[in-house]
Design a protein around this nucleic acid. Structure first.
Lengths: 333, 333
DNA sequence: ATGACCGATTTGTCCATGACAAAATAGCAA
DNA sequence: TTGCTATTTTGTCATGGACAAATCGGTCAT
């Protein structure tokens, strides 16, 4: 008898789950899929009447696939500088047209070495992992690590980012590129001789920031200059950054910010950081999102890799540490 | 005159920023530092009267460092299975005592090969990057990739996770271990010959899950068995997982879940996934957090690497694909 | 004693609405 | 045009209520 009741309960639960659960995503699911916070989703509905999701029996919002699609596109347009007011209620097609209207970096890339970029981008779009891997490896072997990073990987990463923004690249294609490149760079860095020359840098990103490709590229360049890099991966909480710096007795904290970084509160972040670290520790902020960061007392904003390398030599001049002697290291190897 | 006004404004702003902004962290900062959502922080304050942060002029919460410390510890204890009611209002010391009271996996590790683990853990705690790197490389060369992953890296990762939970390891130490290991594994995987044998697997994690070490370990084992792996990194939104699977015409979707994965909604997640993918695509869920996942229709939960390898051979038997012939590949190489 | 079951409690998430400050824009004077 | 101010836009935070899923405690049959 009780057994029957159990079965019945399971059945009811099953029906409940599969029927009215289907038609939409909860607000939490939408937050994770679109990157728009629950607060924003609710306040938009209140202000603009969009998105206006269905409700389940309990009154919870249930967003349709269509709405989620629109919200995704809107998020991208917002990151590109559009304002919410002008995007609300636009259909998927209209939004796509808006996204497509921006300057096509991919097409513009028809210069000398830009031919290479276009080809690589094409490989990504064709999902040909092996070919992509081989092409990159070939580029690395041909150009050497430094030029490979500065002239191929960095522009390619920019292209990929922009292609993603303009909706011509899927997220998983971007992830695939990132994965292959990370693997290659890590391999290349691993092949370098260990360098124990000042300054000693801790490389990481703050909690909200998960992109680490820029960090890896910068590490490659720094290692080539003989600096000692301690890579801590991404997403380090502020308090732990402080502890890491003192545990490793680092000279410099190097942070990377991607273009997607929510730069609204970055000034407060900088102040918090600067306050948590001893003054003799330098703070460098770089990455694709650095161009949108404001320079602050005690935080050096590096907008290009060249500026980063300059900062390195500057640091060495100020602290009377000689750079590596390329000739002697060459002979020694 | 106007110039003076500007200066004055800046000064006022500066004073305002540096003075009353100091004493605490905003609720957003605490959310990011502790992993406790704003909703939870507020509802705890309402229910238990803890944490009771100060307020700034605008009435916003400002949490003290002490409170953040307590909240961090509480979060860890919650992940270990404690209930909020019993933890509220406990001092930092009491919480630490609670955390310390769990079985010491590190000390228990005094067996035969466990000696090695203890030594590696010690290297991590001494922040000796170079030595750690060398020791791991040595282990890899000695044992071969498969045994290295199964007998050293996997147990070590478990040890590190548990050491972190029991407060004997800092976050940045854990990150350092992850980074070094990732680098090593990627290098080892890169050295393997490309394999184009069915099944073709897409490896990734869902949006909330950022741990990828498990994924990497599994990839190494799969590649050794000749399976074709497409690694997409971590944090792939559900909708894009579907698109990636069809774009790559994959046979299997392999997901990794860490112990820290918020398993509250994982059943809904599975259902959503299963519904988004064609039925002929298998879904495998593994990782340290898999033990807490419930088996669902159409989703295979793999609690160990061995189970994972079993799943692979099972798949091959069912689809009449032969495994790799180790002897002939050996001769061919 | 073990395990299934049921009511009571705990707990996380969601909702509605109001408020405010930072950022962006428009307007206006020099 | 440039430099400054007034206005709008926009994201975030606060409060307090509600609910459903998870958990806990006790009961009863095996």
């Amino acid at each position: 008898m009780k057994c029957k009741i159990v079965t019945l309960l399971h059945l009811v639960k099953f029906l409940y789950r599969t029927k009215p659960d289907m038609p939409g995503l909860t607000i939490a699911a939408v937050e994770r899929d679109t990157g728009l916070s629950k607060d924003v989703l609710r306040v938009w509905e209140r202000r603009y009447g969009f998105p206006k999701p269905d409700r389940n029996a309990g009154g919870d919002r249930l967003y349709s696939d269509e709405q989620v699609k629109q919200l995704r596109l809107i998020k991208r347009l917002l990151d590109q500088g559009h304002r919410p007011r002008h995007l609300m209620g636009a259909s998927v097609d209209e939004l796509k047209r808006l996204i497509g209207r921006r300057p096509e970096l991919t097409i513009r890339a028809t210069g000398d070495s830009d031919q290479v970029l276009a080809e690589l981008l094409d490989l990504i779009k064709r999902h040909d992992v092996t070919a992509l891997q081989q092409a990159l490896q070939h580029g690395l072997a041909r150009q050497g690590l430094q030029h490979f990073v500065q002239d191929i990987i960095a522009p390619l990463a920019r292209c990929v980012g922009e292609a993603w923004e303009s909706n011509t690249l899927e997220i998983f294609e971007e992830h695939l590129f990132t994965e292959v490149t990370e693997r290659l760079l890590r391999q290349a860095i691993g092949a370098l001789p260990p360098s124990a020359q000042r300054p000693r840098l801790v490389l990481t990103t703050v909690s909200e920031e998960q992109h680490r490709l820029g960090l890896l590229m910068f590490e490659a360049l720094l290692r080539l200059e003989g600096a000692e890099c301690i890579a801590l991966g991404a997403q380090m909480p502020l308090a732990d950054i402080g502890r890491a710096i003192s545990a490793h007795r680092a000279d410099v904290l190097a942070l990377s910010f991607s273009g997607a970084f929510p730069h609204r509160q970055h000034l407060g972040l900088f102040r918090e950081l600067r306050n948590a670290l001893p003054t003799e520790v330098a703070i460098w902020a770089g990455g694709a999102g650095a161009s949108r960061l404001t320079e602050t007392e005690g935080v050096l904003v590096l907008k290009t890799f060249d500026q980063g390398l300059c900062a390195l030599t500057d640091w060495r001049v100020q602290h009377r540490v000689p750079g590596i002697d390329r000739i002697s290291t060459l002979h020694a190897s």
